[in-house]
Amino acid sequence: MSTTLWIIIAGAVATYLTRIGGYLVISRFENIHPRVEAGLNAVPAAVLTTLVAPAALTAGPAEWAALIVTALVSLRGGLMAMFLAGAAVLILARQFVG
């Protein structure tokens, strides 16, 4: 089997473990330590930020404009609105700056 297929299968198993793990493990404890809970709460923002920050740093004006518009729209709109706004700005700006 190819490496790609192994990645997909292992990723699927890891994902299923997160979907069933809370019931199997956490529900057996009465209380989660506040610091552990604070750490768990921080996981999504912490992981996702690392996928944006270096990419933004090494990008150009078209990408920066798109990210700024995405952040601004997010203060009002939902995920779909901000994504479409950012994508539209990116595609438009790239026609001019390349």
Binding site: G11, A14, T15, L17, T18, R19, I20, G21, G22, Y23, L24, V25, I26, S27, L40, V43, P44, V47, L48
Partner: peptide, 15 residues
């Protein structure tokens, strides 16, 4: 591991 990390929030859902 990254797929696991991004999906980790589901632990709280299933709990």
């Amino acid at each position: 591991l990254s797929i696991f990390a991004v999906n980790f929030r589901h632990v709280l859902y299933s709990a």
